[in-house]
Structure formats: C-alpha cells, structure tokens
Amino acid sequence: MSSALGSTRLVAQGLITRPHPTPAAAVTAFAAMQGQDLPGVLASAALRTPSNSIDDVLTDLDEGRVVRGYPMRGTVFLMPAADTAWITELCAGPSVRAANHRKQQLGLDQEQLGLARDLAAELLTEPHSRAELFTRWDEHGLRTKGGRGYHLLFHLIAEGTVVYGPWNGGEQDVVLASAWLPPGNGLEGRFNGDLDAATAELLRRYLTTRGPATVRDFAWWTKLTLAQVRRGLALIRDEFDTDGAEEPSYWRPGLLEEAKGLGAATAAPLLLPGFDEFVLGYQDRLFAMTVDHHQRLVPGNNGVFKRSVVLGGRVVGVWTRSGRPGRRQFEVDPFVELSQRVAARLEKQYAAFPFVAQ
C-alpha cells in the first residue's frame, strides 16, 4: 500500500507538527491512548507536544488532569480525567460482561467484589500503590495471587469506583474516582444520558486525531455496535471530509492539504513507543507495514508490540534501549536498509526521547 495514508495519519496524530500545548491537551484530543505499557503511553502523550517533556506528563498525572482506566476492550487506556466517567460508561459494558466468565474461573463472586470495593474505599482516602491495595485485600482474605487481584481491580476501575492516578516514582497510585475525577462527568451529566450524542463526541475525537479512518475502525476500537456508531456518525458527518468510497473514510477538513504542505517533514524518521496509537489505533495495521514486517513488530502475534521505527508513514524497523542506567545503548533492527543520514537522525531522536526514567 502507498505510504500516503500513513503519512497523512502521522499528521492527524500530531506526530509531525506536535500541535497540542500540553500532554493533557493531547490526551483530551485523542480521548484515550492505549496504555498497558505505562512508560510508552506517557511518551506517546509527550511526543505530541512541543515541549516533548516527560515531566509535563507526570505533572498532568499528579495534578489529576489525566488518569488511566479500563474504558473498553478490557484494555487499560490513558484518558482525560474529565472524560473518563462517560467514556467508560459508554464503552465498558462488553469487556465487563466478557470478564464475568473469567471471574467465575477465579472463584470470585459478587460478595468478594463487594468486600474488595469496601476495603478500597477505606484505604484510598489518599493515594496508595497497587501493591498496598493488594496487601489490604490479602489481609482480609481476598487472595490476590493467580490473577485474582488484577481481576478485582479491573472490575473496580471498569465500574467507575477507582482509577490509576498520580505518579509515585515507578507507577501510578490507585485512587477513588469520586475523589480524583471531576464531578458531573458521567453520561447523564455530560449528555443527559443520550448515548448517540456521547458516541458522536467520542467518534469526533477519534476521526479528528486518527483520520482518515472508517466507522469500522472506530467500532473495532471501542467495541460499540456498528448500529450505535452509525447513529453517532449521523450527528457529525457534515463536520468531516470523506472519500465517498463504498466503505468511506473520514478525516478533519484541511488535513490532506496540511499533509501535502508539510512535504518532506512527513517523511522524517520517527521513534515511537511500542503501543502508540499510530500503530494500534486502527483495525488494519497493514497500512503502515507489510505482513512480514508486522510479524517482526509483534512476534508470534502475541499482543506485545515492539517499539517502532517509522519512516515516511511506514514502519521500517524496531528499536530497543538496553543496558543499565547511565550506560544505555540504542539499537535498531531495521526491516529495510536505512541510510546513514536516517541513522544519524534516529540517534538524535533517541537522545531527545521522553523516557520516564533513565
């Protein structure tokens, strides 16, 4: 496939012009960024801002502007605190229902979930680490090993009781949603309970930051039904340009002209974290790589994405950071031959990369 789509999406994603003044503004524009690789998603937010500062991301965490939750697909996402409640209420249902089977396998029931909820409410009058929360649960007979603690925490986050909040030096502490999230931002408070309006707002942000993209991309991303997505699209279709294809793509007005005007800038080499939305934000990732290269990016298709090297809208290699603090080494495993000029620019990118810790 032509690299044009990849280059255009790089511009939409803010990776070329870095248009968002703060990490919180970037996360708000995206609505959610996939975040199971915590250092990676923090870097993803920084990479879309002019400052490219990891400290700015950590400040937004500590001051409660961004959090992580489980809004959809059973996957943790970095999200704006002001939007976490309504997005989770809109999208979390399918993943919670799917998790109920696993809950039974783990020997967990509603009584135990209720106890976990009550103990969390008692402990989290101030932020605590996940390990501290699990210790409290263990002390009261809620065995957390074997995935049980993780599963209990998933349920409490997906139901809107707790979220991952401030940075504690190595991870995010767990906090009560009622104390940490701005009030009145559930579906009822933001949209008077109108699911179509909420879907339209989430779709608006998705298409603005990831377009050109289709409604099927969005339905895959959220796991909302196509019928629900199309009702939301009907409310905002006129806000976007489209190609009019049988399966149409949509994008923000002016995007194609902006990408064209940026010229060679869209072909500059980039280093991205492993789970960046440029790679994971679409149902079909082959717009940015071949099948063989995809297998090298996600070995064994095991869901673990390596850090990507992007050139001209295409994934052309993976990269690692090895060694001990103070003696880190930058290594690239290219999928294609890279020129010395590209290699030198990648070294500069590495030196400026927003790592969360050295």
Results as ranks from 00 to 15, higher is better:
A121L: 11
D138C: 00
W86M: 03
L153Y: 09
T144W: 02
H151K: 08
A98N: 13
E132S: 10
L142E: 05
R97T: 09
E132C: 03
L106W: 01
L153T: 12
D83I: 04
G93Y: 03
P80C: 01
A120P: 06
R97G: 08
A82W: 02
Q105A: 07
K103S: 12
T125L: 09
Y150M: 11
Q110A: 14
A92V: 05
L113Q: 15
R97M: 09
A82Q: 11
A81C: 07
G114I: 00
F154N: 09
I87L: 12
Q104H: 14
R130F: 05
I87C: 04
Q104K: 15
S95L: 06
G146K: 14
H128F: 08
L90D: 02
Y150D: 14
A116K: 00
F134T: 01
A121H: 15
Q112H: 11
N100E: 15
G149T: 01
G93F: 03
R117L: 13
N100K: 14
H151P: 12
V96E: 05
A85D: 07
A116E: 12
L153G: 03
E89D: 08
A99W: 05
T144C: 15
A120E: 11
G141I: 03
V96S: 02
L108F: 08
R117D: 12
A81H: 05
A82H: 10
N100H: 13
G107I: 04
H151T: 12
E126F: 07
Q104W: 13
W137Y: 02
D83S: 10
L113N: 11
K145M: 06
F154S: 10
A99T: 07
S129D: 10
L153C: 11
F134E: 04
A121P: 10
P94S: 06
A116N: 12
H140R: 13
A85F: 02
W137G: 00
L106R: 00
G93P: 08
G141M: 06
W137N: 00
I87V: 15
S95N: 07
T135A: 12
R130H: 07
A121T: 15
Q104C: 10
T84R: 03
A121F: 11
A121W: 08
L113S: 14
R97P: 01
R102E: 08
S95E: 03
Q112Y: 07
L153F: 09
L124P: 09
G146T: 03
L119V: 10
P127V: 06
Q112E: 14
T135W: 00
N100Q: 14
T125P: 07
K145P: 00
P127R: 01
D138P: 00
T144V: 12
G114H: 14
S95C: 12
E132V: 04
R97S: 10
Y150C: 03
D109T: 05
L152V: 08
D109K: 12
D83E: 13
Q112F: 07
F154P: 10
Q110E: 15
L119N: 07
Y150G: 06
D118E: 15
L78P: 01
H128V: 06
E132M: 09
T84P: 05
H101A: 13
T144H: 05
D138K: 00
L90I: 05
A99H: 14
P80S: 02
Q104E: 15
K145Y: 11
L124Q: 10
H128A: 13
Q105K: 13
A121M: 10
L133P: 06
Q105V: 07
L152A: 09
P80Q: 02
V96M: 11
H128T: 05
